[in-house]
Design a protein around this nucleic acid. Structure first.
Lengths: 338, 338
DNA sequence: CGATTTTTGAGGTGCGTGCCTCAAAAAGCT
DNA sequence: AGCTTTTTGAGGCACGCACCTCAAAAATCG
C-alpha cells in the first residue's frame, strides 16, 4: 500500500496539520520542521495522491487556448482535438476553452492576457506571433500564478520546456532531405510557397530546408519564397508566373497548411514536380492518397493539445513532466503510412 | 459544476443507494427503476467521477505485460517505457508489471494466463506469436473479468480495438515506397533480412514491401528473405554470400530490430546500398545520424505502453477510449527529424 | 386477502487529502 | 522571568463516491 499523509506524519514525528502545511507550502513552519517532513517523504517514498487532493479541494483545472481567428483546416483540426480532449480529460477534472485572437494585434492579446484572473483560469496555451507586449504579458501571468506555454509557434524567449510544438528548422530540414531524395539527380529548381515570411515558423522552415539542399543537393536551386498573404488569387497568379519564368521546376515546398491553390497550379503543369507540404488536413490527406502530394511533414494536433494540457496541469501541481511523452514529433507521412 | 450522484438521485426520484446500485450494476433493482436512473444520467449529462469512485473503493489498477524473454534493444526500450509509465500513471493509481515468456512455448503462456486471478490482476497486454492455446486462454481471461489486449504482435483473432500496435503490412509498404524513391531508377536488387519468416509480423511487412515494389518500382528485384535466426554468425555468412552471388544490390530492407550485423556487412561493400530498417534503438539511431541507415520505420514504444495501459484501464471502467489518441502511428525517421 | 418476496430508502463509515479553528507548546525578546 | 510571537497539534468538516445494514415500502403470489 502506498504511504498516506498519515504515515508521513507519524514518520516525521509531526501532526497531519504540519504535514499539510509543508505539502502545500503554507507559511508558519520552521525550516527544521520542513526538513524533517521532506526527509520522511524521501524515506517513505511518499507520493502525494493528487487525485484525492483535488477531490478534497473541489478543484478543477481550467485552461485557455488562445488561437488565431484564421480558419485554415489545420486550425480547425486543433479545435476539434480540443473538444475531444475535453471529453477525455473530463475524468481528470480538466477542461479547456478556446478564445480567438487577432494574431496581428499584440495589444489585444496583451490586454486579454492581462485581464485573466488566477481564480478563473489555471493555465494558458498561446499561439501567437512574437511581440514584446505578448512576452511581457506572459511573464506577468506567471507572476500571478497562471501557468503558460507557447503553443505551436514558439515565442523566441520561451524556454524549450515551455514550448509545445516542433522544431521548425528541423521540420524544414526534413522536407529538404525528402525533396533531395525524391527528385532526380539532374539540375532543377525548387519553388517555396509560404503564406508570409514574416512568421518565425516560416523563416525557420525555410532555413532548415535550404541548409540541407545546399549541403547535399547542390544540383537543386531553391528559388526565393513566394508569399501568398492568404489570398488565393494572388497565390495562383504568382505561382503561375514562377512556372512561366522558370524552366525545370523539379519540386515545390509548401511551407504552410494551405496547399490547395499551389497544388492546383502545380498539377496542371506538363512536368509533374515533387510536392512536399505541411500538416495533415482532409485536403492534404486526400492529395497524398491520390498521389498529388509526395510527402507531408506534420505534427499531430491531438498530441499538441493533450500535451499542452498535461504540461499546464503539471505546472499547476508543481510536478515534473514525462519528457518523452511530451516531445512533439516531426512526422513524415507518405501514402502508405497515413 | 458537474452533477454528482446526489443530483442524479434527486433527478431520478430515487435514493442514493439506488443510484449506487445502478451505477455499479448490483442486483436488486427493477428494470423500470434502472431506466429512470439512466434517463436522468442522460438528461443531466452525468459523468461519473471515476477518480472519487476509485478513491472510495481503494482500488488501484494492476496490469501485466507479457513479453518475450528475448533481449533486443527494442524490447529493452519497451521495458524502460513501462518503468516510466509506472511513474507517470502512479497518480492515477495504475501500475504495470512485466512477466517474461518463452515465445515459442504456447503451453507455458496459456498456463500463465490460466493462473491469473481477477483480484490480483486487472488487465494483461500480451506480446506473443499466434497459438490457438493462447487465443483460448485470452478468451477465458475475458470471461473471468480480466481485460486483455494484444501488444505489438497482434493475434489474428483479435479485433482491431484489442490490438495495440501498427499495421505491419502498411509498415512494409512504407518501407517499400521509401526504398523505391531513395534508390536510383536503374535496375537493381533488394535484399530482405529477417530474423525469421515464421512470425506473422515479418510476413506482413514483407508482403506490404513487395506489393509496393512490384506495383511501382518494377526495375527493382526483391530477393528471397534471408533468415538470421538471431544468430550473428549465420547472419554475417548469409548476407555476405548474397552480396557475393548477386551483383547490383541497390537496397537492403531489415525487417526486424536487430540491424547491427546486416549494417556492418552492407557498409563494407564497395557500392553503398540504401538501407531501411525498423525500430528506433540506440544503435539504429546512431546509424541513422551517421548516414549508415537511410530511413527507419518505427513505432513509439512509449506510446505503445501508455496506450496499452489506457486501453486496459478503459476496459476495466467499461469506458470508451479516445480512438485518435490510441492509434499507433507508423513513424518514418530520417536523420533530420530524429 | 394475507403472506412472502423483492425493491427501495435512510443513514452511516471510509478512501486520502484540503482547509479551517482553537488551544497548547515552543521559541524569541526584553 | 515574564511577555510576545511563532509553531505546532488535535480535531472536524468537506469532496464524490463505494459499500454496508436495517427497516420500510412495494410488488407478487397463492
Amino acid at each position: 500500500m502506498r504511504p498516506t499523509t498519515k504515515d508521513l506524519a507519524i514518520a516525521a514525528g509531526v501532526s497531519l496539520a504540519t504535514v499539510d502545511r509543508v505539502l502545500n507550502d503554507r507559511s508558519g513552519v520552521r525550516e527544521a520542521t520542513v526538513k524533517k517532513v521532506n526527509q520522511a517523504i524521501e524515506k517513505l517514498g511518499f507520493i502525494r495522491n493528487m487525485v484525492a487532493a483535488n477531490l478534497a479541494r473541489g478543484k478543477d483545472y481550467r485552461f485557455l487556448f488562445l488561437l488565431p481567428r484564421g480558419g485554415d483546416q489545420f486550425l480547425a483540426g486543433v479545435l476539434a482535438r480540443i473538444e475531444e480532449a475535453n471529453l477525455a480529460f473530463a475524468a481528470e477534472m480538466m477542461r479547456a476553452e478556446v478564445r480567438h485572437i487577432h494574431d496581428s494585434d499584440p495589444h489585444q492579446i496583451a490586454n486579454l492576457l492581462g485581464g485573466l484572473d488566477a481564480d478563473q483560469v489555471d493555465g494558458v496555451a498561446i499561439m501567437a506571433p512574437e511581440f514584446p507586449q505578448v512576452r511581457d504579458a506572459m511573464a506577468r501571468l506567471a507572476e500571478r500564478g497562471i501557468a503558460t506555454v507557447s503553443f505551436i509557434s514558439g515565442q523566441i524567449s520561451s524556454a524549450p520546456e515551455d514550448f509545445v510544438g516542433i522544431d521548425n528548422r528541423a521540420a524544414g530540414a526534413t522536407a529538404g532531405r525528402l525533396m533531395g531524395r525524391f527528385t532526380p539527380l539532374s539540375p532543377g529548381k525548387v519553388l517555396v510557397v509560404a503564406e508570409t515570411m514574416h512568421a518565425r515558423d516560416s523563416l525557420e522552415r525555410r532555413l532548415g530546408f535550404d541548409e540541407v539542399i545546399h549541403a547535399d543537393y547542390p544540383h537543386l536551386t531553391v528559388l526565393p519564397s513566394l508569399e501568398t498573404y492568404g489570398d488565393p488569387e494572388r497565390s495562383a497568379r504568382i505561382i503561375r508566373a514562377s512556372f512561366a519564368s522558370h524552366a525545370g521546376i523539379a519540386g515545390v515546398y509548401v511551407l504552410g497548411p494551405e496547399a490547395r491553390v499551389p497544388l492546383e497550379i502545380v498539377t496542371a503543369q506538363p512536368d509533374r514536380a515533387t510536392i512536399i507540404a505541411h500538416e495533415r488536413t482532409p485536403f492534404t490527406e486526400a492529395a497524398l492518397m491520390s498521389g498529388r502530394i509526395d510527402a507531408l511533414i506534420t505534427q499531430d494536433p491531438g498530441h499538441l493539445v493533450r500535451s499542452a494540457m498535461r504540461i499546464l496541469r503539471a505546472r499547476c501541481d508543481r510536478r515534473e513532466i514525462l519528457a518523452s511523452q511530451e516531445k512533439i514529433r516531426i512526422e513524415i507521412f507518405i501514402k502508405e503510412n497515413l
